[in-house]
Amino acid sequence: MAMGTYEQVIKKLDQLEIKYGMVDHPAAETTEEADKYIEGREGVRTKTMFLKGKKKHFYLVILDDKKPMNFKEFEELTGAKRVSMARPDDLKEQLGSVAGVVSPFGLMNNEAHNVQVYFDKEMLDEDPILTFHPNVNTHTIFIKTTDLMKFIKEQGYEPKIIDLK
């Protein structure tokens, strides 16, 4: 399986003529750690959660990293059933990723196209620039929301916006 590596992410962004900012830093295991390396720079610090529902339904949920994920509310908003964090092997299989490096860029690796992408509305209201690890935790990428949506749509996904409280 061809992996959407860091280099491929950059290549794809360049092909799509998407401008982005990049900070190189030591490996960051947590969002708190990553945030230290990008202190003072504009952009919403995000967390991307890879979830699994019943019947092998997968969900990528992107929200402000300070906001807790409410699984029950997510189910109510989306109609998803029995949602929980996906297991590491699901993460590897579906996005070619590991915990701590999950981002929308992992969709490049989802050959089955069986992941539904959700953004939390509040995060999009507050700031157009979002931050992610580009499939590796030694870089943080800064990208405008509109450009990220373009990237996701180019991968063949239709992101939905939900209003998590």
Rank of each mutant, 00 (worst) to 15 (best):
G53E: 06
L51C: 11
D64H: 13
E76Q: 12
Y20K: 06
E76T: 10
T78E: 05
E75N: 06
M22D: 07
T30N: 09
E32A: 12
I62W: 01
F50T: 02
M49I: 13
H25N: 08
F74W: 04
K47L: 07
K67V: 03
V44L: 13
K66W: 05
T46A: 08
H57S: 14
A28T: 10
A80Q: 02
K67A: 04
F71V: 14
H57Y: 09
T30W: 10
P26N: 07
L63M: 15
I38Y: 04
P26Q: 08
K52N: 09
E73G: 03
T30M: 10
T30H: 10
G53I: 04
L63Q: 01
E29G: 12
T46M: 08
E73S: 02
R41M: 15
A27H: 13
A80K: 00
T30F: 11
I38P: 02
K55M: 12
V44I: 15
V61N: 00
L77I: 10
D65V: 04
K66P: 01
E76S: 09
K47H: 12
E29V: 11
F50Y: 11
Y20I: 06
G40K: 09
T46N: 11
L51Q: 03
Y37P: 00
K54E: 14
F50W: 05
G43K: 04
K36P: 00
E29L: 15
T30R: 09
P68F: 04
D24L: 07
D64W: 03
I62T: 04
K36M: 11
E33M: 10
L77S: 05
F74L: 14
K54L: 09
M22T: 13
K67G: 02
L63C: 06
K36G: 11
F74M: 08
M69C: 09
G79V: 09
K55F: 11
D24T: 13
K55T: 08
M22H: 09
E29R: 13
K55P: 01
G21R: 03
I38T: 15
I62K: 00
P68G: 05
E33V: 08
E75M: 13
G40D: 12
E29K: 14
R45S: 15
V23M: 05
G40C: 10
I38G: 01
D65L: 04
Y59W: 12
D65W: 02
K52F: 08
L63Y: 00
P68M: 08
K72Y: 05
H57E: 15
V61H: 02
F58A: 04
G21I: 04
K67R: 12
D35S: 15
E73P: 00
K19L: 13
K56G: 09
I38E: 03
K67E: 12
I38D: 02
T46V: 14
F58Q: 02
R45I: 11
L77C: 08
T46R: 02
K54M: 09
K56M: 10
H25V: 08
K81G: 02
K47Y: 09
K52G: 10
K55D: 15
G40V: 06
T30D: 09
T48I: 05
F50C: 04
I62R: 00
